[in-house]
Simulated assay, not measured.
Amino acid sequence: MSLRVAPDLLEQAQNGKVSDEAFIDCIRTSLPYAWDMVTGLVNELRNGTAESAQNVEVPPDDEAWGQMFRMMASDSMRNAIQRHFGVQLAFQNCCKAAVFKPDAVEAYERFISPEAQLLNQDPTLINC
């Protein structure tokens, strides 16, 4: 299961009324490795002058890899996180995630290009 959903949050979802704040809290507590990685990138982006901040650290174990995959593979989670932080998320693989300033369109397009994906491949990360 990708998220640990509290009974009250499940009831809210069944009634069609889940706030972004409640959903973000569920993501944060269910996927702590992925959340901390994205939060660190957002802080790096906000404290610097670059158009993006990119993670290059390999997740330490299968659980951390799974968290990254679950977070980034979910449109609803990515969209909520983007709204929460006011950034654009991008993902090439479990150890190459990035956050972009909203106006960094060219940098974002380069990052998500086929060329960038191919250049990011590393034979030592076969399980990635």
Score class of each variant (00 low, 15 high):
126 I>T: 04
47 N>T: 05
16 G>Q: 10
98 A>I: 02
66 G>V: 03
43 N>C: 00
67 Q>C: 10
16 G>P: 08
113 S>L: 08
70 R>C: 02
49 T>N: 10
112 I>T: 15
15 N>R: 15
80 A>V: 02
64 A>D: 09
54 Q>C: 08
71 M>S: 01
117 Q>C: 05
83 R>K: 02
34 A>T: 04
28 R>G: 05
126 I>P: 00
45 L>M: 04
83 R>H: 01
103 D>K: 07
22 A>C: 03
51 E>V: 04
101 K>S: 14
119 L>N: 14
126 I>V: 06
32 P>W: 07
24 I>G: 01
121 Q>N: 05
11 E>L: 11
81 I>F: 01
54 Q>R: 14
6 A>H: 12
27 I>D: 01
89 L>F: 07
85 F>S: 06
96 K>F: 07
122 D>I: 13
49 T>G: 10
72 M>H: 13
105 V>Q: 11
4 R>C: 07
103 D>G: 07
58 V>R: 13
118 L>R: 09
71 M>P: 01
52 S>E: 08
36 D>T: 11
47 N>P: 01
102 P>A: 13
17 K>T: 12
9 L>A: 03
22 A>N: 11
10 L>E: 12
114 P>K: 13
98 A>K: 03
123 P>Q: 11
84 H>N: 01
126 I>N: 03
98 A>S: 14
97 A>L: 11
85 F>P: 06
13 A>M: 15
88 Q>G: 06
122 D>F: 13
69 F>N: 06
43 N>Q: 05
66 G>N: 13
53 A>F: 08
81 I>C: 00
70 R>M: 00
65 W>K: 12
1 M>K: 05
65 W>V: 14
50 A>M: 10
61 D>N: 15
20 D>S: 13
92 Q>P: 00
57 E>G: 03
51 E>R: 04
91 F>L: 07
93 N>Q: 11
65 W>P: 00
24 I>R: 02
29 T>W: 05
5 V>I: 15
109 E>A: 15
92 Q>A: 09
